[in-house]
Computed example of a mutant assay.
Amino acid sequence: MKTTHFSTTRGLVAALSLLAIGALPQSARADVVYSTFGPGNSFSGSSGYDINGSGIFLGYREQAMRFTPSSSFTLTSVDVGGVTFMGGGTTNFQVVNDASGRPGSTVIASGTITFTGTASIKSFVASGAVNAGTNYWLTGSPVSSDSSVLWLHSTPVVNGMVASRSSTVGVWSISSGTQSAFRINGTLLSGSAPEPGTLALLALGMVGGVVARRRK
């Protein structure tokens, strides 16, 4: 009988806790949509993919990294690890759709980042929404012809789909390899988490079950 009483009490506590959670004001929660940064925001300080303007001797180059959110989010910001190799270091980044396995033309979010000669993480404010289980790309392109930036690699290495192209209208070349360092941040959309009403119904069901057991 003592064991039954303890179990019943514990069940009541769990049910009342769910009711309390359901009654709390539900605010948007900041979260990470996707990240290739290592522990402590670690990333490579010397190796990466070049993003070059047309005036750079290596030739024009854009880069892109594919990511797939596990839940649906409204975007808030994007963080990128990079370093300026030549020129001003200003780079345009865009979150775009996936079109048959390549970066598409639909821009979901965009922003400009200016890197320096020291490897660092730079950010831009983002907006727009991404859906769970859908592929997207973060693309990087030069703003000026004399700019060359190294979009630094992830460390520890995160492998995934990467893309590059040598003109603004060229076909993207796709491969699987080391992704560059970036993080997509957002707020979890309400449909991706249990609604307060769902928690309340679950809690009420638990309370009913506990009461029924106590009457036996």
Rank of each mutant, 00 (worst) to 15 (best):
F182R: 00
T118D: 05
S105R: 04
V125S: 13
S120C: 06
S47D: 11
S27I: 08
F6H: 08
R214P: 15
I174Y: 02
A64R: 08
G197R: 09
S167W: 10
L138Y: 00
G101I: 15
V96W: 12
S17L: 11
V157Y: 12
L188Y: 11
T36Q: 00
G140M: 05
T3H: 13
W172E: 01
L204T: 13
A30D: 14
N135D: 12
S167Q: 05
G59S: 10
N131C: 05
S27T: 11
R183P: 09
N41T: 09
F85I: 09
Y49T: 07
I51P: 11
G38C: 01
V169S: 12
V149N: 02
T9N: 14
S105T: 13
N97Q: 06
L150K: 01
G208C: 08
L202C: 10
V158W: 00
S144D: 14
A109L: 09
G38M: 03
S77L: 08
A15Q: 12
G170S: 12
G205F: 10
D79K: 12
G133E: 10
G87N: 03
T106M: 10
T84P: 03
G59P: 07
Y34P: 00
L150Q: 11
L204F: 02
S77E: 12
A23S: 13
V83T: 03
L75M: 11
S173I: 01
A212N: 15
S71H: 05
S180N: 02
S120R: 00
L150E: 15
T187L: 06
A181C: 05
T134L: 01
V95H: 04
S145F: 11
P142R: 14
S148K: 11
A203Q: 04
G160C: 05
Y49P: 01
S123T: 15
M65V: 13
I121N: 10
F124S: 06
L201N: 03
G22R: 01
L201T: 08
G104L: 09
S127K: 02
P25A: 01
G133T: 07
G88N: 15
V207T: 13
T84I: 02
S71T: 14
D79H: 10
A109M: 04
S166I: 13
V162C: 04
Y136T: 00
T8W: 07
G59I: 12
L204G: 10
I174M: 08
D146H: 01
Q26M: 00
D50R: 15
V149S: 04
G48P: 03
L204Q: 14
A109E: 06
D79R: 12
V207F: 03
S7A: 13
G133F: 12
D146T: 05
N52S: 13
Y49S: 10
T90M: 05
R29C: 03
G160V: 12
P69V: 00
T139V: 04
A119M: 10
H153C: 05
D79W: 05
P25V: 05
L152W: 02
A163S: 04
V210C: 12
F85C: 03
G140F: 08
F73P: 00
T68R: 11
I113Q: 14
S46N: 07
